[in-house]
Every structure is written in C-alpha cells, then in structure tokens.
Design a protein around this nucleic acid. Structure first.
Lengths: 344, 344
DNA sequence: TTGAAAGCGCTAACAC
DNA sequence: GTGTTAGCGCTTTCAA
C-alpha cells in the first residue's frame, strides 16, 4: 500500500504538503493541490487511519457496550433501534461504530474500560447494569468519555439519555379507563434489570387511577423480564388472581405478544376478551392482529441522542447535561396499520 | 495515560521487556515478569492498541458492511442473526466488530474498500449486492481480505458462505403434499435483491412436486421483498388467481406474518383455512400462534462461519474455499413451542 | 506557501 | 534473558 511519502515523491512535494491536501488545508496553492491529488489518484492512495489515530490521539471510533449477552442484544428489538439510532448519527459524523457484547455479563464493564483505556475508541456508550456506577466513577476519574443509555445513579446529572415512561403509561391507563375498564392489569418491567427509573411506568398507571378515583391494587401488577414467556405467564397469573380482569398494559412488545398468546390459548374471545396495550410500538406491533394500542418507546431517538452526546463530549472535551426523553401513547384502530395520536 | 516507557521506568527494565510481558513471551524471568506486572497494575497501564496496530500492521478489527440502509439491517431479523453469529465468533477470537451501513446504497461498496484501504480494519464481511463482483476483483487485485455472505458471481469459488435453500423448500413441499394439499402456493424471494442462488427455493418446490407427479404451475408462485406487506399482498393475489389454494410456503418470516394476517382478514378459518409454512424459523415464529411449520435458515451459523473464515484468511494470508450451508425444515405441533424435525 | 525534523507508543531485529 | 535502535505512517512545531 502506498504511503504519504510515495505520494510526495511522485508529486515532487514535501510530505507535509500532501498532509495539507489530505486535511483540506487552505494553505496550499491550487496548482500544487492538483498535482498532489493526481498523484494520490494514480497510486490509489488512502491515508492510513491507524497512523493518523496514533498521531492525533483520536480514533474516531465509538464503542457500544452491552452487558446482556449477544442473544439479548441482537434479538431485542428496542436494543436494535437504539443501536440503529446511534449508528445513523455516528456514521453521518464520520465515526465508526464498534459493537461489543462481552461473552459474560460481568466482563462487560471491564470491557468498556479496556476499550477506552486501550484507546481503541474515543468513547463508549454504555447500557446501564449493575455496577455501572463504579465504572462511571473510574471514567470520570481518568477523564475518559462515556454516555449511558439511562440514568445510572442518584448523583448522575451528566452524560445520560434517559427515557421517562410515565407519560405513556399514564395515557394508556387513562385511555383504558375511558373505555370503561375498571380492572386493569399491569405487566411491569422487572427490577432484576438495572434501571434507575424503575417506577415511572407504575407511577403513570397509579396517577391515572388516582385521577379517576380508583384505588390502586398491587394484585393487578406483575413484573416480567421483557420476554414473550414472561408476558404469557404473567397474564395467566393475573387472571387467576383477578378473574374479572378486562384489560392489561404490557411494558414491552415481546411481553405483549406473550400476553396475546395466553389470551388466545385461554379462549378469551368476544365479550370476554381482554384489551391489551403494548409497550414499545415496534414496527411489527404496528401490524399485529388483533390491532393493539401501544405506548411508544423512543429507542431510535435515544440511541441517536446518545451518539450526538458522545460526539459533543469528545469534541468539546467536557461532560454534557443529561437528556430526558418521554414515551407517548397511540390508539390503534381496527383498520390495518392505522394509528392516531391519543388526545390529538 | 501511562505508556510502556513509564512502566519500564517504574519496573527498572527496558521497554522491550515490558513488551515481552504484555505479549506473554516466555523469554522473561518470572521475577522480572512480576515486577513488570506490578508496575503495570500500579500505573493502571493499558497497551495503546492504536500503536500496536500501526507497528503490527494489523488492527484486529473486522468490518461488517451492508448495502441496504440501517432500517433494513437493524430490523431484519435474519441480518441480526448473521451479525450475532459474526460477533460471537470474532469477540471470542479477540477481534472487534465494526458495523458499517452506508447512508446510501451506492456508497456501500466504496465504503468497504475505504475501510480496508484505510487499514481501519483487517478485512470485511460483505453482504452481496449489485456491483459487488467489481469490488471483489479490486479486493483480489490489491490483496485485501474479504468474505461474502453468499456467492456473488459464477466465478467465485473462494471466500463465501452461501446458504442453499433447496432442502428446506423441498421438504416443506413434500410435507404439505403428504398432508393432502394439491394447490400449494409459493411466496418466493424477490429477484430485485442480489442473490446468486436465486432459484434454490423454487427448485426445491418443483422437485417435490415432480416427485409427486404434480405439474408445476407458475400461477402459484409470487415474489416478495421479504416484508410483512409483501406477504400480505401476495397471499391475497395468490388466492384471487387460485381460489382453491390450501397451503402456502413463504420465503421469509416477516412475509409469513403478512400472509397469516391476510388469511385472518379474509376470514379463512376452520376447514377453509390455509396451511402456512414459514421461511426462517426465527425465535418469534417458534412462538407464533397459530403454530406454523417452518423452513430453517442457518443465519447465525452463516455469520459465525463468515467470521471464522475471515479470521482464517487473515491469519493464513490466503483465500479459503467457499462454504455451503443448507436449510432444513421443522414441523411445528399444536402444543406451545414444540417442534420436531421432519423425517426424524 | 512550503519543508525539515521530531515524535505519537509500540515491536522486531539484532546485539549482548 | 535482556537492552538498544530503528521505524510503522502520519502530523506538528518551527523555520524558511
């Protein structure tokens, strides 16, 4: 592979001049520039990114580190949406995206540290998980660059993109109440996942109930690990304890699919059917039958914002204030794929 | 950040000795090793991967380049499975995975070239697309490392991992015939996607029909772009032209979901229902209701094999013979999630 | 507007 | 077993 020196020799200029042309410096005569460009083209020269990185102390790569195993990351639709948002922003800004999913959960955070200390990447986007706050302290101490996909501790005021699910669950509950439902189940997210905003979904649900003057009953609440199986099991469990249940809100779309399946298996159709509200409003959910209304999860936006934030942090050399995004709620009509905004 | 020299100074040894310790050379006395290790720990030293890359002319990064836009890559479940397979293999081998999805299709191949010529990555895994054969010639010419997820031209004998879908569709058709179906539709993959093995699915289908002495009728075949919408539209179109249709085979799972939705919307239940065979046997499909039998698509294995192949190519410094994987077929029983192998 | 020389952090020869 | 030296390909003073 040709080097900058080969180009310089061919163009009969100094290496520095070639470097100037590569970096679009204006301090180079037009004629010289053309000569250099011609030489570069002739040799099919491409600047060695590694050498540039070493010199500039900057790799233009960002790590995306997830601590939940590849079968989770590459199969969880929300995670993919976050990844897609991050990718889209970074690639437009000339950064490469390095995806790292350690084989073992407990290695994940060390992996994030290694990746940055190695100077492999200029910064990382971290998925919250147990022990992440220690890692963050170390990042801060060593002045390394990071952004977290969600708040990781009481003290964290910077470098996060959090999603507040209160509005979505509030509106969903309010909607179901407006349809006349009085026993509304909630299949909530599990506390076994690391999340700072653990109670937002529950709070929105409670607020709407309170507003309607209906007492909150914990027997109507379950927790699940976001999976199909958990949606299935939890719906059955809810029904056993609350035979009069007529509606249920699910914290995630896969759990929604599981709940729908359980309803089907139990033969609950027609008048005895159960109204289900989905959690994420993923593309597939938008096409599901029966059509379901859904809370919306701004996963793509979250990933994109995190990408933007890490780039800003790197470029400006200092932390950025955290950002809060909010969920919404859409009512799905019976017609194929149609959706309208609630209260709009 | 501390450098190797800082460690050397603290441990009172030469830089080379530190380097030896890092690289697990056996040519270093145990006592010296301990001293160095202690110094490394004390300084929280991490080798600068960029510097190592520059020296070694090797970045230990692999690019994964897809030419279909991020909304396709990060939403197509098969692509994710391929990515997951690649990631799992590479990360176990100490390689980083760089995911690149150019904003515009036509840039994709240039992007792949740039990434390798830049020395950003040691090699790339390429998704077949129009014009990829030219890129491959250039890779060969310049002695750059690549693997393609599928054969890209008549001449390509090396560096690919292809999936032959003949067995799956043959078995699927045979199974449907064994149930007594005589009008079996096929929603095939579209020719607008770049694929060398365009006719494998169709061939398996035809072979099974022929074996049963049933004439092939092109009116029973449609093509779709793998999406829900195409499955939906094609099922309706098939039924319009073939009112007696009793079964259909779909080339992809999203198309399967669309077809099931169409069947539901048309009110085809009970005796007049249509037996559907899915295309990929994705996790979600395995839990679908109604339960559907499915061809299986070894996407994870394909990605993993591609990862293994690119590493071998890089390590051995020469091309590797292409690998062919095959699809299979599973019959799904009515019980939740249960599946059995066909003919086993 | 251009060039010479030093150095980013590491490793590979080649001594000793 | 260990150390010295040179150099990977680029950019950055500084000088011309």
């Amino acid at each position: 592979m040709p080097t900058l020196y080969d180009v310089a020799k061919l163009a009969k200029v100094s290496p520095k001049t070639v470097s100037r042309v590569i970096n679009q410096s204006h301090l180079v005569a037009e004629e010289t520039r053309k000569k250099v460009l011609a030489a570069m083209k002739k040799l099919d020269y491409h600047p060695n990114a590694i050498a540039t990185s070493l010199k500039r102390q900057r790799s233009n790569m960002i790590g995306f580190v997830v601590p939940y195993g590849s079968e989770f990351v590459f199969q969880d639709p929300n995670m993919m949406e976050q990844l897609r948002g991050t990718h889209d922003y970074l690639s437009a800004e000339g950064f490469e995206l390095v995806v790292t999913v350690p084989q073992h959960k407990k290695d994940a955070l060390q992996e994030a540290l290694r990746l940055t200390k190695n100077r492999h990447v200029d910064g990382v986007i971290l998925y919250p998980s147990l022990g992440v706050d220690e890692i963050i302290s170390e990042f801060r101490e060593k002045n390394l660059r990071y952004v977290t996909l969600g708040i990781c501790s009481e003290q964290q005021t910077d470098n996060f993109v959090e999603v507040d699910q209160t509005p979505g669950s509030f509106l969903a509950t309010k909607y179901l109440l407006s349809l006349g439902h009085r026993q509304i189940g909630l299949i909530n997210k599990s506390r076994s996942f690391f999340m700072y905003n653990r109670d937002d979904l529950l709070n929105g649900y409670r607020m709407a109930l309170e507003e309607a003057g209906i007492a909150f009953r914990s027997s109507l609440v379950r927790e699940g690990n976001f999976t199909f199986a958990d949606g299935y099991a939890n719906l059955r469990s809810l029904l056993e304890e609350n035979p009069e249940l007529t509606a249920v809100i699910c914290a995630s779309d896969p759990m929604t699919y599981g709940a729908l399946r359980a309803i089907h298996d139990l033969g609950l159709v027609g008048d005895r059917s159960i109204e289900v509200v989905a959690g994420d409003n993923l593309p597939l959910t938008q096409k599901l039958f029966p059509q379901v209304s859904s809370m919306t999860n701004p996963s793509y936006e979250q990933g994109r914002t995190a990408g933007k934030m890490i780039v800003t942090i790197i470029n400006e050399g200092r932390d950025q204030p955290g950002v809060n995004l909010k969920t919404e709620f859409v009512i799905r009509q019976k017609e194929l794929g149609k959706a309208t905004n609630f209260f709009s």
